[in-house]
């Protein structure tokens, strides 16, 4: 009798947990699906479900030169910021990853701090400093600002990849007479490459999507895609933005799928 009671109790627990988990997963995925469906509407409003389906807003997107221009700027800044983040971040990760020294731990905290500090406050601060030293806002200041907020992802993922590395591999390589540089090129780099790529990917995505830093550090001529979209949404609810969102969602899904194959992204973020 008590056995049966316990089973009921276990069932109630599993039922409640599973139901909440499924609801939560639906809440996570639903918004993207809704935007995708609405983007194929044949009507002029964002009504759901759409009155009919067409590709007209995607065709409209083809001619939206303002969005093309903004997308190009965002892409260029994101590529530069990612490149700079990888160059600076991987070197720093090599230095601090295996060190127990206080200085290494302090540097680690410093390099991670842009992740928790409000990016808008940093954007304002950087603008004030640049104007103080007489450096006008430009694509260069954008790249610098984006690098500060994106480099933590590269450092974190590279440090995590280095932590998985067997120190004995490096010792054996040294004992066999390989130089440090040779060992790095032939052993360390191939083993941590997926970690670096995963970090670079997240850095790229967060730069491409950045609003708070761009708001302060761009010049009038440099329109950035997320800011353009944000301003369009503040004004009117344009269906073209739904089509653009559709493109971005599909591109993100495709990139995540590629990254999952190349780097095992999902395991990397839960370890």
């Amino acid at each position: 009798m008590s056995g049966r009671k316990r089973t009921l109790e276990a069932i109630s627990f599993e039922l409640v947990m599973t139901v909440i988990a499924v609801i939560a997963l639906v809440i996570i995925i639903a918004p993207s699906l809704v935007v995708l469906i609405v983007s194929f509407t044949s009507g002029f409003s964002l009504r759901f479900p759409p009155p009919g389906y067409s590709l007209r807003w995607y065709a409209e997107l083809w001619n939206a030169w303002q969005l093309h221009f903004a997308a190009k700027n965002s892409l260029i800044v994101a590529l530069w910021a990612t490149g700079l983040s990888v160059a600076l971040g991987v070197a720093a990760a090599l230095a601090i990853s295996r060190s127990q020294a206080l200085s290494a731990r302090l540097l680690d905290s410093l390099f991670m701090s842009p992740l928790v500090l409000p990016a808008l406050a940093f954007g304002l601060a950087a603008l004030m400093l640049f104007s103080l030293v007489g450096l006008p806002v430009s694509p260069l200041t954008l790249v610098i600002g984006h690098t500060v907020v994106c480099v933590p992802y590269v450092v974190r993922n590279t440090v995590a990849a280095l932590a998985q590395l067997e120190p004995t591999l490096l010792e054996s390589s040294a004992v066999l007479g390989a130089s440090r540089l040779y060992t790095f090129r032939r052993i360390v780099l191939p083993l941590i490459r997926p970690g670096i790529i995963a970090g670079a990917f997240i850095a790229f995505m967060s730069s491409f999507d950045n609003v708070p830093v761009s708001l302060f550090l761009r010049d009038a001529a440099t329109d950035m895609l997320p800011i353009r979209m944000w301003q369009d949404l503040e004004g009117k609810l344009d269906v073209t933005i739904a089509a653009l969102s559709g493109v971005l969602i599909i591109a993100t899904v495709a990139l995540v799928a590629v990254m999952e194959r190349v780097t095992g992204l999902s395991r990397r973020l839960t370890n």
Binding site: P31, F48, V211, P226, M229, L233, S245, T252
Partner: peptide, 17 residues
């Protein structure tokens, strides 16, 4: 993971809809 990597503007736009 998907929402983490999808543009914040896109995700927010979805909630307006």
């Amino acid at each position: 993971l998907l929402p983490l990597l999808t543009s914040v503007v896109v995700r927010t736009f979805a909630w307006i809809v």
